[in-house]
């Protein structure tokens, strides 16, 4: 390591004897690197970058498409919901009316039955009352006849009956 100073006392950069060597190998290296880059590396990277740009553009388009579809689906969903609600209301209304009609019918039927029963009962009461009045008349006639017989009063049956009936009528009219 002592002898190089003999040939290159100053800077090795200014040792012109090495210039042809450096220039030759520089030209070789640059040409090789240029060929590698221009033939292989740069087209490949350019393709990758273009590919990526394409992918990104496509993805953005796809995302927008999906977004539009989602909005559409939401719209459809809302529409279906509104339809379902309207249908529900319609069904509820129909059911209510049906029930109301049935209720009305049953109510009318029940009222009719009640009226019929009441009429029947009234008729029976009237019959009982009538029969009771007849019995009272008969009892009164019999009693009158018995009383008259006890007092030995001769009275024909017809006048007795007429008297009792007149009295009863007077009573009935007073009632």
């Amino acid at each position: 390591m002592e002898e190089p100073d003999v040939t290159a006392p100053g800077m090795p950069q200014l040792d012109f004897s090495t210039y042809p060597n450096q220039i030759f190998w520089l030209v070789v290296s640059i040409v090789v690197l240029y060929l590698i880059l221009s033939r292989t590396a740069l087209p490949r990277i350019a393709a990758v970058l273009a590919d990526r740009r394409g992918t990104i553009t496509n993805d953005i388009a796809a995302a927008e498409d999906a977004k539009a579809k989602a909005a559409e689906a939401e719209e459809a969903h809302k529409q279906a919901l509104a339809d379902a609600r309207a249908e529900t209301n319609r069904i509820i209304e129909a059911a209510r009316q049906e029930i109301q009609a049935e209720l009305d019918a049953q109510m009318a039927e029940a009222e009719a039955e009640i009226a019929a029963r009441a009429a029947e009962s009234e008729a029976r009461i009237r019959a009982i009352r009538d029969s009771a009045r007849d019995m009272v008349a008969e009892v009164a006639r019999d009693t009158t006849r018995e009383v008259l017989h006890l007092f030995d009063v001769k009275a024909d049956a017809r006048s007795v009956t007429a008297a009792v009936n007149a009295r009863l009528k007077a009573e009935g009219g007073a009632q």
Binding site: L33, I36, L37, R44, A47, V48, R52
Partner: peptide, 14 residues
């Protein structure tokens, strides 16, 4: 330089 530009980019990955 070749290692970076050729070997490094060999995957061609997105």
């Amino acid at each position: 330089a070749t290692a970076l530009m050729v070997y490094g980019a060999r995957g061609r990955a997105v």
